[in-house]
Design a protein around this nucleic acid. Structure first.
Lengths: 341, 341
DNA sequence: TGCAAAATCCAAAGCGCTTTGAATAATTCA
DNA sequence: TGAATTATTCAAAGCGCTTTGGATTTTGCA
């Protein structure tokens, strides 16, 4: 059942039927209802291919698999992707993926994706400090939105969380509790979010004239094993930390195990705060003890970013969206006051 | 630059140019070369939308996010997806994703995806024992291929690994080494692969008249924590296992930690074999000690399955592909002979 | 009541490709 | 050499939708 057949059956022109279905104003509400009913009755589905050809829009948004793969990154990407896919489906858009690999550089993949012209826009995730993908996409004329922020010469669309504020708040909480020796187990600082978090942490320390001992600023892929190693080493030092601030729940697990191995109890001897992306299986609530966290659902971010992107597509001359989400600091049981030494 | 402009520039008809570019035989090799050169020169890219409309093929393969999410599943799905996306890109196909969620059942998502008709075929992953998605897709007339196997009335296209044979071989190795009390830490048996693995394990035991003590057949989501609990409990029993056979490296990590906690050394006191999907970050080689595994790259499976799917699309009347990959048993250092008791 | 404006609806022209059916040019063979 | 093949090329008809520019009917208001 195509438009032609449907309009014949209704005794209307294709124009009118098309307009009725797409909500254009120049059709009476009576006709619109008739058309809608007939379309429903006959199970009419407009051909996506024909619409694409006629409108020049593909109804598809592209995403690129991160070039660097690791477990933590994969989990976060998958969660974000899931959010995007979920909401895109609701809004009638498709998400298609591409991937950099081997000989084909990430830039080449972006270029190919743009050249193939099968997507209307792209979502850029995990930007690094000055991400080359932004000028690349801009020069190619491909609309895009960034999940996160980066340094760029031109304004760009983005959705980010307030990483700096979150980690400043978390650090302040620890300092308020009397923890002078607080270690930051961060992600890799070439990623903007990690850099922002470090800045937040350091600004809180500076404000109170708290010196961060050398070695207390750790960065690495956000995994349990690495964090375990870092925490173990710090705890073995002369002046071990009394608090840890982690960039992920996985790192918190590593830190917690290191503490346990050192005979220290989280929530009693040591304080622990982690950032919680609300991944499926890393629940801060189920941690022992339940973990104080800065939390912000990365799945929600995916859902929202798709919405923003589609709004941009529908109204290209609107100002670029630039959303920064505040981050909740949820205090649970992992943050005791510092003990007198 | 579209076909019309390109053919005008060449002084040829659109027909000829189209055929030249698509490798049809009824065009002289001289003309073909001229056309190819001009296309290259002017950077001509055929419009995907127009081609889709004309051919009725979208050049897109659909995948659905698993309805049940957990960390182990996400990692495996992502790795598989990565393989699919990578190779699909090479072959000029797109992968688009959809997702079941909340009120919208998985079946509804499949139906919607088929109705929208934006994909030529679908890839079904992680089938359960008698997976309802197969008859559903068949009844909807959507071509599909399954990663794994299931019980079905009709023949269907699939690519699977020999889970049963792999676990039989692994069990035989352990039995050969004298391990009489071997526990299986399996995935959930409603998934076909887990069921196959159990069958392989049990058939090896039966063949040697080795009784599997009650409680030695464990199934659960394939995660470290769960496996740790299961192994700990088994090790605390009257007749603790001397060997573990795990469905994933994550489970092996859990089992290893349980052994360590019980004062047992993997590779000395206890034998451990795991199935290794060759995920990015779970390297059996880096395990301590390096792990004996049954291994088969799930990324390779993704690459291959896309290839098979596209071949099906190109030649619909060819027999359905049905590939079963043998699985390597790689012996490393985690499988000592059973110690005399 | 008459006329401009607004409300509805329509025919037809694309969007850029593939493919059918025919025409033309080059070869082959008797 | 002339007829039958074979090799090349082309014009034109879709594919199913959106959208432009009009045509027709209705409404609003003096």
């Amino acid at each position: 059942m195509n438009l032609k057949a449907l309009s014949a059956k209704l005794g209307l022109s294709q124009t009118t039927v098309s307009r009725a279905l797409n909500g254009y104003p120049e059709v009476s509400s009576e006709t619109r209802a008739r058309v809608a009913a007939a379309a429903e009755l006959h199970g009419y589905r407009p051909s996506a291919a024909a619409r694409r050809l006629a409108t020049g829009q593909s109804g598809t948004i592209g995403m690129i698999f991160p070039a660097e793969r690791n477990m933590a990154g994969d989990l976060i990407f998958t969660e974000f992707l899931g959010g995007c896919v979920e909401h895109a489906g609701d809004l009638g858009y498709d998400i298609t993926l591409a991937m950099a690999r081997g000989e084909m550089s990430e830039e080449a993949v972006y270029r190919r994706t743009v050249r193939n012209a099968r997507v209307d826009a792209m979502i850029v995730s995990s930007p690094i400090l000055a991400d080359p993908r932004l000028p690349l996409l801009a020069s190619l004329g491909m609309p895009f939105i960034v999940h996160g922020r980066t340094q760029a010469d031109e304004p760009y669309a983005f959705l980010d969380i307030d990483n700096e504020g979150a980690f400043r708040a978390a650090a302040n909480l620890l300092f308020d509790l009397g923890h002078r020796r607080t270690a930051l187990l961060n992600g890799e600082c070439r990623y903007n979010y990690a850099s922002d978090r470090r800045r937040g942490f350091l600004s809180a320390a500076r404000q109170r004239n708290i010196a961060i001992p050398p070695g207390f600023l750790c960065e690495a892929p956000m995994q349990e094993g690495t964090a375990f190693g870092q925490a173990t080493q710090l705890l073995a030092g002369d002046e071990p930390p009394t608090a840890f601030l982690c960039s992920s729940i996985a790192q918190a697990q590593g830190a917690a195990k290191a503490c346990m191995a050192a005979g220290l109890h989280i929530g009693r001897d040591v304080a622990l705060i982690a950032h919680d992306d609300r991944l499926q299986e890393f629940r801060a609530e189920n941690f022992d003890p339940p973990l104080t966290t800065t939390q912000s659902s990365i799945g929600d971010a995916g859902r929202r970013i798709v919405e923003l992107m589609i709004a941009m597509l529908r109204n290209p001359q609107a100002p670029l969206p630039a959303e920064i989400w505040p981050v909740d600091l949820v205090v649970r049981n992992s943050t005791p006051p510092a003990r007198a030494i």
